[in-house]
Write a protein that binds this DNA or RNA. Structure first.
Length: 211
DNA sequence: CCCTGATTCGC
DNA sequence: GCGAATCAGG
């Protein structure tokens, strides 16, 4: 494989989006993460910050101003089928803010109101999300197992998931009370043993249990 | 052990 | 220019 314009473009885009070198390498295919990192450096965009190099006289303080973290509209936990190019939900990193927006419009800045910033309830772009079967469709044994396991869940965030961590979502995506199981996933499966148990069920058992 | 990016250096 | 090997770290 060679670095065609198109591949370089993809590299630049994903790197700008904050994707890791290994993720980019997987997307591109035919290259290792080392190759990606090497290319990144050669392109001179290793330092993910600063749109443009040097300029030391940087404005000492990037005044807080605290305006960006507005409440995001709750993202519907809809399963997104894996497509050749899963991309749609990636939150574009606002490299540059066009305009500060009408800050003055707000009479009294809520100093004490501290909006929870990190509530990235985004949809995973890897495997499809589990159907979250209703309780009466899960066998009592599996259910007990899952509840037990969820106490030991590693509570990973979306960004911390890898190919071998359980991607079973726990909690309400619309709140901060949300994380992913994160326990070791079964080889080739997106979930850990317990969650595979509730994710993949024989149709017969499923029908028998359904109301 | 899983992962991350940074650097080196033979090709 | 390329990227495997290696380094340094979480």
């Amino acid at each position: 494989m060679s670095w065609t314009d198109e591949r370089v473009e993809t590299l630049k885009r994903m790197w700008a989006e904050g994707q890791s070198a290994s993720q980019i390498a997987k997307e591109l295919g035919g290259v290792t993460r080392n190759a990606v990192i090497g290319k990144v450096h050669r392109l001179g965009l290793s330092n993910r910050v600063g749109g443009k190099e040097e300029d030391e006289a940087a404005p000492a303080a990037a005044a807080p101003a605290a305006a960006p973290p507005r409440v995001e509209p709750p993202v519907a936990p809809k399963a997104e089928p894996v497509a050749p190019k899963p991309e749609p939900v990636a939150p574009r990193a606002p490299v540059e803010r066009p305009a500060p927006a009408p800050v003055a419009a707000n009479p009294v800045p809520p100093v004490t109101a501290l909006p929870i910033p990190m509530r990235k309830a985004i949809i995973i772009a890897g495997q499809p999300l589990p159907p979250q079967p209703s309780l009466n469709e899960i066998s009592p044994e599996a259910l007990a197992s899952v509840r037990e396991v969820e106490k030991r869940a590693r509570k990973l965030t979306l960004m911390e998931l890898t190919e071998r961590t359980c991607k079973w979502p726990i909690g309400d995506p619309a709140t901060d009370d949300f994380w992913f199981c994160g326990l070791p996933s079964l080889p080739g499966k997106p979930y850990c043993e317990a969650h595979v148990g509730v994710a993949f069920q024989p149709m017969s058992a499923r029908r028998d249990r359904r109301r």
